[in-house]
Design a protein around this nucleic acid. Structure first.
Lengths: 106, 106
DNA sequence: CAGTTGATCAACCACTAAGTTGATTATAGA
DNA sequence: TCTATAATCAACTTAGTGGTTGATCAACTG
């Protein structure tokens, strides 16, 4: 996979398990064990998912004794939103262009 | 990879080549050859990328003789935007909650 | 210190993804 | 009909992902 920040973010969000983890973190900080609890998979697997989310900047991890509390970070979400708006914006201008030319682009 | 629609969309967007293709399509329809032209890779590879984008609903393909003109579709972009807003919305309410409780959550 | 708990590291396996080349299909045009 | 062009299909290679288990590290607790 490419390692630019948009690719990392989109790729991190492309997994349902990771999206569930983020949904949980939107309710507040949680430890690895707490995050792993709802899933069938092993703790190690969840730990790997967290590493992916962390690399994408979607979470940060603190330290509290032997716990590593995770928290959601929204900066990458803002970045994908800017990407989307840029793309849709260009497309909208095209749409307008075609309309001005009187073409039927439907 | 999971085959739910959010996963398909995020996964499709996680590749820089595919994002370049979408950027090109935001300027207007294009054929496979036209889309492949800027890239070093083979035509077949680009054709595969288009299949991924099509499966995610990010493009549709028409037919014009032997050409298969591609066009951008924005519905999946709207879906990821709704996802983002939902997630950030929940997070914002948490933020508010913590503020009401007088906690320092920074 | 010994034991327990939280979490990560390491090695491995099965599957998928992204690229290649070569063959094939479909249409246009001489 | 024969050839050229647009695109896809098929088979294969390589590398990466998501999961497993077992070992290890780090910190609290008796």
């Amino acid at each position: 996979m490419a390692d630019d920040s948009l690719s990392l973010t989109f790729s991190a969000l492309a997994d349902p398990t990771r999206r569930e983890i983020l949904a949980r973190l939107a309710q507040g900080e949680a430890t690895v064990n707490e995050l792993a609890e709802p899933f069938e998979m092993s703790l190690q697997a969840v730990s790997k998912h967290l590493k992916v989310l962390e690399r994408a900047g979607l979470i940060t991890r603190g330290r509290d004794a032997q716990w590593r509390p995770c928290r959601l970070e929204t900066a990458p979400l803002e970045e994908i939103d800017r990407y989307r708006r840029r793309l849709e914006g260009r497309f909208a201008r095209l749409d307008e262009e075609l309309r001005r030319m009187g073409k039927n682009h439907e």
